[in-house]
Design a protein around this nucleic acid. Sequence first.
DNA 1: GCAAATTAATGATTTATTCAAG
DNA 2: CTTGAATAAATCATTAATTTGC
Lengths: 231, 231
Amino acid sequence: MEEEKPPSPPSSSLPAASPSSRWNPTKEQIAILEGLYWQGIRTPTADQIQHITGKLREYGSIEGKNVFYWFQNHKARQRQKQKQESFAYFSRLIHRHPPPPPPPPPPPAISCSNVLCAPFCLRVPQVEGVGLYKPQYPHVYLTGGAIKRPLPELQRMEMASKKSLEPISSTHQCSYETLQLFPLHPTGIMEKTGSSLTSSSMEANCNEEEGQDEEGCEILPFFNFFGDNRS
Amino acid sequence: MEEEKPPSPPSSSLPAASPSSRWNPTKEQIAILEGLYWQGIRTPTADQIQHITGKLREYGSIEGKNVFYWFQNHKARQRQKQKQESFAYFSRLIHRHPPPPPPPPPPPAISCSNVLCAPFCLRVPQVEGVGLYKPQYPHVYLTGGAIKRPLPELQRMEMASKKSLEPISSTHQCSYETLQLFPLHPTGIMEKTGSSLTSSSMEANCNEEEGQDEEGCEILPFFNFFGDNRS
DNA sequence: GCAAATTAATGATTTATTCAAG
DNA sequence: CTTGAATAAATCATTAATTTGC
């Protein structure tokens, strides 16, 4: 009973049920995620995660948390990879040598006019609406916001229960279909205890950690993450 | 629109709406939470959080994430406090001195027969069902499980949308009213993509970090955290 | 060519750190 | 100054690659 190896599909394009204990992304999913990453998405908001998840689901089972984790891990590992590459570069440089070609340019840079210029250029099924997220970089601020932290990112635990990119009842206010770059609403959403909790001041900003790692400016929508209480 | 400050209540015992941006626990809530902590609860499961939240709501508005964060922070801060106290103790000890009374005994120790012997002994309204959680320590293992980690703690993002300690539709299987110390079901819950994802091997175990900090063995229920998609 | 053994990637959790409200 | 909230770093664990022996 060590390990059972059911006929594991070639790990690609098969939305069938994978009895695996952890998400196993398909090629397409990875491609799309990387594409988004290269476009500048680093810490997608709850809405974005919803969007992405819904789209990626077409290429295999996936949950919101998978997307969330993916970005978290990818960001962290890109950072550390770059860090050590940078170190290797300077190390090599110091060990006296004619300066080799400049250090690997920080990958997470878009600024492409608007259309993606992904380096992977894989023939990924271009999902519309997910294919090109607006780069978010232009440091969008809320008109008249106090602005402090980059993004309260409360989304970790909240996300609407709408699951796919369905028509989406825009009962709230933001179109959300194109890409809401602004907070849908500063109101509390998670509880209905009658209290209008969850502050009302939420803005976006850009923080730069400790290097060149540009954190995409994002806004937080506040949503019931990974909702879908399928009782 | 810097910040709107509607009449903020005296932050105590008033279940009324607190327009504050962050949760402001009432005395009772704190007392109960500490009581639970002293009983051994460190990283409550989603169900426990539900329970606790539901009960604490009687003493003021509160959300699941507040409980979650509270335990997280409290655990961390108790640990660091103890760490520095321990350091101070040994420091004092090394600076030659007759060994003073033994270092502060690690608070997170219950093993009280079953009833709480809390040192705070505050006249806290003993909520039944929440007042005395089973200490969880007895290292419960799943019957016939592979056992690996203490608790996948997936609960961070999942939690049923049932909000209070309502009768709770035991549609699942575990009574849950007493305290389910066993996984309700190893199946995937968050997604309904038709795939039977989220493995089927989840067990509990106890890990001991780096000291005496006993992590309560817990099982993961898998739930839509902070659900409540009040569209 | 296949399958057990090893290694490398990377998904998932936990812990530490930081920020800011009260 | 306390502490709720949020994020990033570190860690763990599982899966896929890859290697090795038959």
